[in-house]
Simulated assay, not measured.
Amino acid sequence: MFKTIGFLFFTLIFYSCEDNTRISSCFRNSIATVPLDLNNPQLNGVLTPTGSAKITGGMQGIILYNGATLGYKAFDRKCPKFDCNTPMSFDGQRLKCVCDDSEYSILTGEPLPQGTDACFAREYTVTRNGSSLRISN
């Protein structure tokens, strides 16, 4: 009797759970590690908070962003909806897919407006060691 009640309780709990996980990335690519030197003049834009630079790598290039207290952020310029062969643009505040006018947060990669079910922009890991940055999966 105890086993039956326990089984029914577990089954009820299991089936009452709802999957609310959002798709954080529709990309399944791996990239070669991109080493960067902050002393490189190409990266002068990222030395100041909210500064950015376009660099090679990823699928269609990478936007490197200085998120100040959030650290460095790196996003692929490939449109997450895969409906565009043109790299996303960056206006200093958000990434924008020029083919369908979809926009993404530079801080999280989340589609804007927030709460939509679209895929996030592809974010890479940025590791800093002194004046060196490393962008990887």
Results as ranks from 00 to 15, higher is better:
Ile13Gln: 05
Phe14Pro: 03
Tyr15Ile: 13
Tyr15Asp: 01
Tyr15Ser: 14
Cys17Thr: 09
Glu18Met: 05
Glu18Arg: 09
Asn20Ile: 07
Asn20Arg: 12
Arg22Val: 12
Arg22Thr: 12
Arg22Ala: 13
Ile23Thr: 13
Ser25Asp: 09
Ser25His: 07
Arg28Ala: 10
Arg28Ile: 07
Asn29Trp: 01
Thr33Lys: 13
Thr33Tyr: 00
Val34Trp: 05
Val34Phe: 05
Val34Glu: 10
Pro35Thr: 04
Leu36Trp: 07
Asn39Ser: 11
Pro41Ile: 02
Gln42Met: 10
Gln42Tyr: 04
Leu43Cys: 01
Asn44Ser: 15
Asn44Asp: 14
Val46His: 05
Thr48Gln: 13
Thr48Tyr: 02
Thr50Ile: 12
Gly51Tyr: 02
Gly51Ile: 07
Ser52Thr: 12
Ser52Glu: 09
Lys54Val: 11
Met59Ile: 13
Met59Cys: 07
Gly61Phe: 02
Ile62Lys: 09
Ile62Tyr: 07
Ile62Thr: 07
Ile63Val: 14
Gly67Asn: 12
Gly67Glu: 07
Ala68Ile: 04
Thr69Tyr: 10
Leu70Trp: 06
Gly71Arg: 09
Gly71Val: 05
Tyr72Leu: 06
Lys73Cys: 02
Lys73Phe: 06
Ala74Gln: 05
Phe75Asn: 01
Asp76Pro: 15
Arg77Ser: 13
Lys78Pro: 04
Cys79Tyr: 00
Pro80Ile: 03
Asp83Cys: 09
Asn85Leu: 01
Asn85Lys: 00
Asn85Ser: 08
Thr86Gln: 12
Pro87His: 01
Pro87Thr: 00
Met88Ile: 08
Met88Asn: 02
Phe90Met: 06
Gln93Val: 13
Leu95Thr: 11
Lys96Leu: 08
Cys97Asp: 12
Cys97Thr: 06
Asp100Gln: 11
Asp100Met: 04
Ser102Pro: 03
Ile106Gln: 15
Leu107Asn: 13
Thr108Arg: 12
Glu110Tyr: 08
Pro111His: 08
Pro111Val: 10
Leu112Ile: 12
Pro113Ile: 04
Pro113Ala: 05
Gln114Arg: 14
Gly115Tyr: 01
Thr116Ala: 11
